[in-house]
């Protein structure tokens, strides 16, 4: 192996022989924070903050396993079925289990036009979902009434339930809906978590999952 230009920041692993034990010295030689942490890591200890732990345990778990409620109303439902299909696989996001019952679902994807007769049913289903629950309004009809501006269609599902992500399109391509679900995942990861009386707000770090 050629000699690399930059010095190797990691200590070389000793292939054989006794494991190298860092010398315990009484002299307080200045050692950088990073160096100290690396030494700790090699001893099998990792430092983090409670906030990141809670974020991982709660938000990441929620984000990577969102279980949608099977709530397809109209044409958008077919594109929603297509993301469950083999070409646009939503199983990669942990969300392929479309629950039949609202009591077991986290996410309600309102896929299709909401008619005035269906609106109380939708509200009842939303109320039956346990917290934390999220709503994606898929398509133009669910977001704002779409091409139907008349007596029979609710002009936007946000008139009856709070919506987290709006996905435009008529119908939105499956890729667009998956983008909407990814945006929802970002939103979940950025949301504060309350543990008892403490509130942990995730630090916004670019590029860190």
């Amino acid at each position: 192996m050629t000699e690399s230009k930059t010095p190797n920041p990691y200590r070389p692993l000793v292939p054989s022989g006794a494991p190298e034990v860092p010398p315990v010295s009484d002299a307080l030689e200045p050692i950088s924070e990073e160096q100290r942490m690396r030494e700790e890591v090699e001893r099998g200890v990792l430092f983090t903050s409670v906030g990141s732990m809670v974020n991982w345990a709660v938000n990441q778990s929620r984000a990577n396993a969102i279980w949608p409620l099977g709530f397809g109303l109209a044409c958008c439902a077919i594109e929603m079925m297509a993301i469950a299909g083999p070409r646009f696989d939503i199983s990669r996001f942990g969300a392929e289990v479309f629950r039949g019952s609202p009591r077991q679902a986290d996410l309600m994807i309102v896929a299709g036009r909401v008619s005035v007769k269906m609106a109380p049913v939708l509200r009842q289903l939303y109320d039956q979902m346990p917290s934390p629950k999220y709503v994606i309004s898929m398509g133009a009809c669910a977001s704002c009434g779409g091409i139907f501006n008349n007596y029979a269609i609710l002009q936007g599902v946000d008139k009856i339930v709070p919506v987290d992500v709006y996905v435009p399109g008529c119908p939105p391509r499956p890729e667009a809906l998956i983008h909407g679900i990814m945006k929802l995942q970002e939103k979940i990861l950025a949301s504060p978590v309350e543990v008892g009386t403490l509130t942990f707000r995730p630090r916004r770090k670019k590029g860190v999952a």
Binding site: L73, A74, G112, R113, S115, V116, K117, M118, V121, F148, N150, Y151, A152, I153
Partner: peptide, 11 residues
Amino acid sequence: IGYLHTGMEKQ
């Protein structure tokens, strides 16, 4: 039925 009535004929 009627949960998806869209009023297409009126529109």
